[in-house]
């Protein structure tokens, strides 16, 4: 199994000289099985560049086929769809898996951005065959030669994490999520950090944490939301993002040997991310959890 990063930035794309190394595109990860089967995770602006590469590999002649797993439908995870060229070629086949929200059908959510008032590209310009599969947490399903498990993440309006097992390896994407310290998965705006927990909230968080720890056992490589550094998280725990420390703790609890810092904050320049890479490389000598900083264009072979 090969994992390739096409977009690693959170919130919004950040062009400019200070993101040349790690990349400024919003989330998109390519998972390629040994037999060539393609699974794409999230459709941030990074999917535009992936699309250009796919055009030269079967998708240009309408013979492409892929599954797209969406963690959640906040803009930065779906905004690349209209610019994914293989969608506009007859014959290509895509299955889009995501959890619908806000009482809307998944297709309505994905195509909402194609309304005349938002984009000059109507959704009926899509020529590929699209299947929309509405999923939820705690499911297990098969995509070709891969077995996928879904789990609930602690993010406003809920995000879904994915565990993908194929070729004798296990890969997991855990983004976007806060640690399970406060309940953030409600359907209302969270203007400030939640106050003390009720018993029910504690139970909910405990259950989510337990499920996450269980699903991550035997994972070989995890991609984790590390939007914040520790001092930033303290100020904004209600935003639904984590720190590298939270990710390392999770690896230690679940026995995950290797993780990538992912969903970098827009303000995290190459210089800052280089600093984090050095710091966490040293730290891994104590924790024995290998930490890399996800970088656009980087391939990880599992």
């Amino acid at each position: 199994m090969k994992v390739k990063f096409w977009g690693v930035r959170g919130s919004y794309p950040v062009p400019g000289i200070s993101t040349n190394k790690y990349g400024g595109n919003t989330p998109c990860i390519e998972v390629r099985l040994n037999n060539g089967q393609l699974i794409i995770i999230d459709a941030g602006t990074g999917i535009r560049m992936l699309g250009q590469e796919l055009i030269n590999n079967g998708f240009g002649s309408g013979k492409g086929r892929a599954d797209i797993l969406i963690s959640h439908t906040h803009w930065d995870h779906i905004q690349g769809f209209p610019f994914f060229k293989p969608l506009f070629i007859d014959g290509n086949q895509f299955t889009i898996h995501a959890r619908p929200s806000n009482h809307l059908h998944l297709k309505e959510i994905i195509s909402y951005q194609n309304k005349d008032c938002y984009l000059p590209i109507p959704f009926n310009a899509v020529k590929a065959n699209l299947d929309f599969v509405e999923i939820d947490a705690d499911q297990k399903f098969r995509i070709g030669d891969a077995v996928v498990k879904t789990f609930k993440l602690n993010h406003p309006n809920i995000a879904i994490g994915y565990r993908i097992e194929a070729d004798g390896k296990v890969f997991a994407v855990v983004s976007d999520t806060a640690p399970f310290e406060n309940v953030l998965i409600g359907e209302q705006f969270i203007p400030k950090p939640p106050s003390t927990l009720t018993e029910e909230e504690e139970r909910t968080l405990g259950e989510l944490q337990f499920k996450l720890n269980s699903v991550l056992e035997d994972v070989d490589f995890m991609v984790y939301d590390t939007f914040f550094q520790v001092n930033e998280y303290v100020k904004n725990p209600h935003w639904g993002h984590s720190t590298p420390e939270h990710g390392i703790d999770l690896c230690l609890e679940s026995g995950v040997p290797r993780m990538a810092l992912f969903h970098h904050a827009p303000g995290n320049t190459d210089e800052i991310l280089d600093g984090m890479q050095n710091y966490y490389r040293l730290k891994s000598k104590e924790t024995h959890v290998e930490v890399i900083v996800a970088r656009e264009g980087e391939e990880i072979i599992l």
Binding site: H74, I78, I109, C117, P156, E187, Q188, F189, W239
Partner: peptide, 26 residues
């Protein structure tokens, strides 16, 4: 705008499915 009003369209990009802001009223 032809299809709606300006406020509704600007609010549309902030609705729950797309944004943790849940609307410009926040």
């Amino acid at each position: 705008p032809e299809e709606s009003d300006l406020k509704t369209i600007l609010d549309g990009q902030l609705q729950a499915s797309f944004s943790p802001i849940y609307g410009m009223s926040n």
